[in-house]
Design a protein around this nucleic acid. Structure first.
Lengths: 192, 192
DNA sequence: TAAAAATGTTAAACTAAGTTAACAAAATTT
DNA sequence: AAATTTTGTTAACTTAGTTTAACATTTTTA
């Protein structure tokens, strides 16, 4: 089980004793998935909050017309789950699919509650992680409200240059809220 | 100091002892603002996380062209702050302005840290509040990506009928990410 | 209560982005 | 290496939403 990246990540937020680490390690699940598989499907209940050790996922909503709307990508050192479903144990709004073969550390819903009780530092950790996620989410909303598609693309390219390189362009378009054809047009405009 | 609504609100998430309540009450600030005043201005550091006892606020980003983009409204029993600025003590991205005379309970940045240490239940409370806010934020992103302006307006009207009634229509338009003229058109379409 | 300010409506001209469709290039599979 | 699938491009046409501007209505202030 490759858990080092998670411990290293956690250490940036809170410092755990060896004992606390051991408890954590004994409770979580290490698992590999193949490209194309699903971690969560819309309508299912999301049972795990997952830390990406290696690989890549997309989280997307599929609308009534069968169109995908990508909410986020997760790569190494990011968390992924359908938060609404995971917290409330209600049907998931989103699909989470692997874009590459992916290694995860998975924390089950009931275990995370137990960990909060046994290791308050972990509750602090997740409070901080969610604060950060919320802040990023708010900033994305305001970008979507105030910037043109072209500027959103430029921002994305600067912010996540490595993600852009490992993901098909039509998924970037979906994440930006535009069609692949329009992104293609934007890119050709930017070249001239 | 009207603090009852806050205690009642907290009680929905965690149950505090009388002593814990007393600590909390002794640390927070009660204050009234007038319509038109600002709680936070873009560029300032946001020093408080605030619970609305009565009244109403708008949180908005002002872009380079001087256009307002409304992120959220806060009414009774909601929290408001520029989270990014409050957490990191960095310049605020947003303005928060009072749309009515408003009563607030304000928690200073350093006090909230202290409260997390003294009353772990409060850290749990805020973890849960932020989880909820994050979930709502994600759902808003997906609505903005997947729904037309008309459908977003219908959703808003159904979700927040009371807010719609106390806020000028052009602010609703800004929140939805459209012009006031287009919202006017949508509304007239919906009548026929 | 008159005047001024803030808010809301309508319509024509315009533009950013979507749709459709045909084709090109890469990547994967056979 | 050929065939197939996936991904990306281009262009003509359409549409959702913006801009501008003039005017109407409501609310606030003098």
């Amino acid at each position: 089980m490759k858990i080092e990246p998670l411990l290293k990540y956690i250490d940036k937020y809170v410092s755990l004793t060896q004992e606390e680490m051991d408890v954590l390690v004994s409770k979580v699940i290490y698992r590999k998935y193949l490209k194309g598989q699903y971690l969560v499907q819309q309508g299912d209940v999301c049972k795990y909050s997952c830390f990406v050790i290696s690989g890549c996922t997309k989280t997307f909503y599929m609308d009534d017309e069968g169109q995908e709307h990508i909410m986020m990508f997760s790569v190494e050192d990011w968390w992924t789950s359908d938060m609404s479903s995971f917290i409330n144990q209600t049907p998931a709004d989103f699909n989470i699919q692997f874009l590459e073969n992916t290694e995860l550390i998975m924390i089950p819903r009931d275990i995370i509650e137990e960990l909060y009780e046994r290791i308050p530092k972990l509750e602090r950790l997740f409070r901080k992680i969610i604060e950060k996620a919320f802040i990023a989410s708010q900033k994305r909303i305001v970008r979507n409200l105030s910037m043109t598609a072209k500027d959103r693309y430029i921002y994305f390219r600067n912010q996540y240059p490595l993600i852009e390189q490992r993901i098909p362009q039509y998924m970037v378009a979906s994440y930006l809220g535009i069609t692949k054809e329009f992104l293609s047009k934007i890119k050709s405009q930017l070249l001239t």
